[in-house]
Design a binder for these strands. Sequence first.
DNA 1: CTGCTTATACTCGTGTGCGAATACTCGCGT
DNA 2: ACGCGAGTATTCGCACACGAGTATAAGCAG
Lengths: 214, 214
Amino acid sequence: MAKRRKVSNLLGLAVLSTVSARPMHPYEMASLMKARGKDHDMDIKWGSLYTVVRNLEKHGFLAVEGSVRDGARPERTVYRITDAGRDELADWVRELIEVPETEHRRLEAGLSVLGALGPDETAELLSRRLDALEKRIAGDRAALAAATEVPRVFLLEAEYALAILQAEADWVRAFLGEITGGTLEGLAMWRAFHDTGRVPPEIAELAERGAAES
Amino acid sequence: MAKRRKVSNLLGLAVLSTVSARPMHPYEMASLMKARGKDHDMDIKWGSLYTVVRNLEKHGFLAVEGSVRDGARPERTVYRITDAGRDELADWVRELIEVPETEHRRLEAGLSVLGALGPDETAELLSRRLDALEKRIAGDRAALAAATEVPRVFLLEAEYALAILQAEADWVRAFLGEITGGTLEGLAMWRAFHDTGRVPPEIAELAERGAAES
DNA sequence: CTGCTTATACTCGTGTGCGAATACTCGCGT
DNA sequence: ACGCGAGTATTCGCACACGAGTATAAGCAG
């Protein structure tokens, strides 16, 4: 059980990584993150940024370098990373890389309550999802291909995200095929349940047991 | 921009889906969810349960059916779903199925700050991750295969989760191969950066640009 | 040089997620 | 007949996330 982080918001990881280059003030961190596509994988919430920075400081991962007054601008507090901060950063990355998360995918949640929808509507929705997915995949793939001058080491996240997106699209396509093709086992039951609100009781019980794994 | 839900915690979705069968009190909902593998995809936080139920009630998706005193037990409040609740449930599922989420994967975050680790350590960590992933996949696959009496319609989430897990494992395996095989473009640079903390400045700039997609 | 927009830089307040504590009851072993 | 652990059912309170608001400065159009 990975010990709970003092600061658990992943924005904190991005902050640590960003200030590890040189001391800077919060707004600059955010700008830098935004400049590289960081906001793409992990969108930056302004409200959280300052809270997170303050917490990182409280736990000794950041220290106040000083504060700069630039003309009449509001005073900006400049932070630098501490040794503890570097350790935390490394340790955090290690955990993220080593331990496969128990992901909570939204589609998974949706699929688990599909009873609320009928098969026909589901098929319709899934086909829209598939369209969106395919557009996104095409766009991302093009962007990746266009970045020829950038060494691949810097594009790993994007490649990984693309692979997962692709797997999702494949799964959705296959499932959609089974609904429209009528080959899905239990399709009739699903339709009946949606129309009448009833499910054969012995089946209901099976469903309870069914998902209770390992 | 999918309109923000009044109650955004996905636990609320599970609650709505569970009480849609018949009125019940919060603890019973949780037990039911736990009984089917719901806690597997979406682990139930006791603290959140009562908050979420109260919020669902506040927004008119649940209504108090009454309260039952069973012997000397503390009084239990029984909730039933309202029409608005059924609408919300259906609408929510529609959104989850139709709209591909901007997922925030933890591995993605890790990969984006890999600079903090060297290639060798990364390879080591990834190979551990791969082991864990493969064990999990084997286990899930076996559980799925063992549930022959359960119609597939009830096992969709598990199948989907498995497909994604498999894609992750594949990607990790390929990436790991590139590190250990030395075929990863920019590997030398990565190693140099980790050892010396320096990166050729023109490359640094490229990296900034690189990830800034569409 | 005046008024508008956009960027800079941050603070505040609200809601809520959730760990931990509480308290009572039932069944089982001894 | 009694103590104890497991199950039942819920409350509390803190810390955190983050939307929305604030205020000033720079750029630029007319």
